[in-house]
């Protein structure tokens, strides 16, 4: 039997530079890990470098004074940013009041009402809405919408002038560049984000739940109310928070239409400012402490948006886990 020679052959086979290959494996692993870590590095560097640069402004006013001060006067080295925080909150909350119901409606239309072909068109429309750059929304808003809508604002103010409460919020307007216009633009820009997440959330509602509701004799609306909405509540909260975070950070479209006043007003038809917008508006003419203060506003904005986004992700993930539990 000469076959005894053959089993030895595999031992001779060299599978190719064993040590070199192992080193390559280790090197590759280190490379991709480093690439993954850049995310953490960038986020950390943002916080550290901008905080250091903005520090003189925090020091000038005190951290609390910087956030709660109501007077912004760069020429006198007074940097109170509360009017901008107020503007950010007011515009993005109004935007959410408009955008959240509309987005949920669109998502319901896509998942429950539309036929397959119309569904494709509507999804395309929403995707296109998401790709329009914010500066183009701002351009259309300031040159086309504002001139047309200003008389409408005044008309509305006249209409509600006898109503106490409402007449403070919707008072005389002498400009179309104000909180409401900014909020309208923000609402349109937030719709695609909220819609896409709401769709994902609705897609996880078990088909059996829906069929069960129909079998009990529910109309479509009763099915939505009874089966879809309770199941998706957590996910929708997360979606709304993501939209809110996006709206608070939106810069250019708001900078174009909010007017640029650094005072606060309960009248939504008055011009104001937001944290992101004031940085873009005043950056070109800023230097020294003024520039540090603008960067400090950026730090404040960064902190707020990171917290909101983090919470939103946690809420969405919780909801996802809950929904998966319902599946099995």
């Amino acid at each position: 039997m000469t076959a005894t020679a053959t089993p030895e052959a595999p031992a001779e086979v060299d599978l190719g530079g064993e040590a070199r290959s192992r080193r390559a494996d280790w090197g590759f692993r280190a490379l991709v890990t480093a690439a993954g870590l850049t995310v953490l590095a960038v986020l950390g560097l943002i916080l550290v470098t901008t905080s250091l640069r903005g520090w003189p402004a925090f020091e000038e006013e005190g951290l609390l004074g910087f956030i709660t001060g109501t007077r912004w006067a760069p020429n006198d080295d007074v940097f109170g940013t509360f009017p901008m925080l107020y503007g950010t909150l007011v515009t993005s909350l109004i935007a959410m009041i408009i955008a959240v119901p509309v987005s949920i409606g669109i998502a319901l239309f896509i998942t429950e009402v539309a036929h397959r072909r119309t569904r494709k068109y509507i999804v395309t429309v929403i995707d296109l809405l998401a790709t329009v750059p914010s500066v183009v929304f701002g351009l259309v808003a300031i040159l086309v919408v504002v001139p047309v809508i200003t008389p409408a604002y005044q008309g509305f103010a006249n209409l509600v002038s006898p109503v106490p409460g409402l007449n403070a919020i919707f008072d005389d307007s002498n400009t179309g560049r104000n909180y409401i216009t900014a909020a309208l633009v923000l609402a349109i820009m937030a719709i695609p984000i909220i819609t896409s997440i709401a769709r994902e959330v609705f897609a996880t509602v078990p088909e059996t739940d829906k069929q069960a509701a129909y079998a009990l004799g529910a109309t479509r609306w009763e099915m939505v109310k009874g089966a879809i909405l309770p199941h998706s509540f957590g996910g929708l909260v997360g979606a709304s928070m993501l939209g809110l975070g996006r709206a608070m950070g939106e810069t250019i479209a708001v900078a174009l239409v909010i007017g640029g006043a650094t005072s606060m007003s309960a009248n939504l038809f008055e011009p104001g400012n937001t944290m992101a917008a004031i940085i873009a508006q005043q950056w070109g003419e800023s230097s020294g402490l003024h520039q540090d203060a603008l960067i400090a506003i950026g730090v404040e904005l960064f902190a707020i948006t990171v917290i909101i986004n983090f919470l939103a992700r946690v809420v969405v993930r919780r909801a996802e886990i809950k929904m998966k539990g319902a599946h099995s």
């Binding site: 950070g249 873009a280 948006t305």
Partner: peptide, 15 residues
């Protein structure tokens, strides 16, 4: 990474 997608673009510019 998800959180980073929500960082406002102006903040990236300042950074």
């Amino acid at each position: 990474a998800d959180v980073m997608t929500g960082v406002p673009s102006i903040v990236m510019g300042l950074f």
